[in-house]
Design a protein around this nucleic acid. Sequence first.
DNA 1: CGAGTAATACTCACCCTGAGAAGAACGGCG
DNA 2: CGCCGTTCTTCTCAGGGTGAGTATTACTCG
Lengths: 249, 249
Amino acid sequence: MDERTFLESYDPRNFPAVAVTVDVVALTIREGSLQVLLVERGEAPFAGRLALPGGFVKSETLDDAALRELAEETGLNAGHGDLSRVHLEQLRTYGDPGRDPRMRVVSVAYLAFAPSLPDPRAGGDAAAAVWKPVEGAEDLAFDHGRILADGLERARAKLEYSPLATAFVGPEFTIAELRAVYAAVWGEDLHAGNFHRKVLSVPGFVEGTGTTTARGGERGGPRAKLYRAGDARVLHPPLLRPTAEEAVR
Amino acid sequence: MDERTFLESYDPRNFPAVAVTVDVVALTIREGSLQVLLVERGEAPFAGRLALPGGFVKSETLDDAALRELAEETGLNAGHGDLSRVHLEQLRTYGDPGRDPRMRVVSVAYLAFAPSLPDPRAGGDAAAAVWKPVEGAEDLAFDHGRILADGLERARAKLEYSPLATAFVGPEFTIAELRAVYAAVWGEDLHAGNFHRKVLSVPGFVEGTGTTTARGGERGGPRAKLYRAGDARVLHPPLLRPTAEEAVR
DNA sequence: CGAGTAATACTCACCCTGAGAAGAACGGCG
DNA sequence: CGCCGTTCTTCTCAGGGTGAGTATTACTCG
């Protein structure tokens, strides 16, 4: 940035009133469906409407601010324990003038992936926070609907070439559980045999524990082998979505 | 975000002094090598060092701010003509405390791809702006080295599954010119025959004009067919990088 | 014990890929 | 003018990954 312009703005009197916030698209899988963490707004604007959890950035990194907001809204501990297995990544920044009617707000959106978490208890300054299926969560406050849509598209794309799906399951999991994650996020069923073959053929995606589940499925079937997440950071070859790829003009 | 926290900060006296800027990683291909637009800083901090062009966000969208900064530094017109064929996309936001020693600065980084542009003339408030090969541009002011590295990785990845490469060439181009773009960005040569086959097999990537170049290559060879960019927004199947894919643990 | 279910393995035809080579068109030079 | 090197373009071929379907086996439930 240019020095002269900087010094002009350096004087607080000349400061444009810009606020910097973080908003978090926290995704999890509960009861087989992809759900997002939302809070009900108590005051205007958009009073009574659902919104993404978020808040002002303090003297901290942007990543820390997002993690802190997530911890406050869910009532879980950030540093140790509960949220330690949450995958957090920056999504995109939204800063159109007018996206908040009160003032200029530049919001850095984050994407969080978590295994099934307990119901949020209103900790800190949180209003009522709830998990909602993403299908019913289009009508949000501010431009949060667009942010959620961007986050979902990112999540769906990242499942293809990253081991992100393991962030949605426990420390040990079966191939079928992993397949259920893909099915929930992509919204379509996958061929069990092919999925099995492909997951095991990607180096470093999963590694066997040598153990199996204690018992078979609830409606029958053999015990499944258990796996842990491997050390791969990218999946090669990737697991591509069956549809929604071609004809994207 | 929470209303109570908002109102506390709404009072300008309580405002944390946060500045919002945009920084632009502008890439082009000149003389067969990938180059980035840099400006020399005139004052402290980092006086005399090279930095990415950027500046404060005014009453405009973030995208407009990035385009404005790019126009100012290059001396080209933004809206019409010169910069109209530039592809611009948001890269990532950098906001660590201390990344600017003067105050808290949250910077939204943008990535720009342009065909070969004329040498920048110092318009507006620009210091000396120059195109530099990306290989020699590691030591930049602030955290701009990291921003450039992130931008390069994004550019290299996007060539695989998006028709971005056409943003680096003129309105009409040959397959060989497109191959030179991939070679410059990825830093490795590609098999001419296979590249040819793959580009033409991706629906909507390029469309033939029915014409050819006026004469053959400078060192011989037949006239090449000319193509225009097609209407595809994603490449399917993608053009994957030969290396740097597997064993990424 | 029988029926239904699910994990895992296997087959097969098809497509895409990398590597190599061939054919053809062209510029430069003697 | 004719040769040579260069480059565009097309073709072949073997190998690997893919989707679709099937088979086998191990379990739960009633």
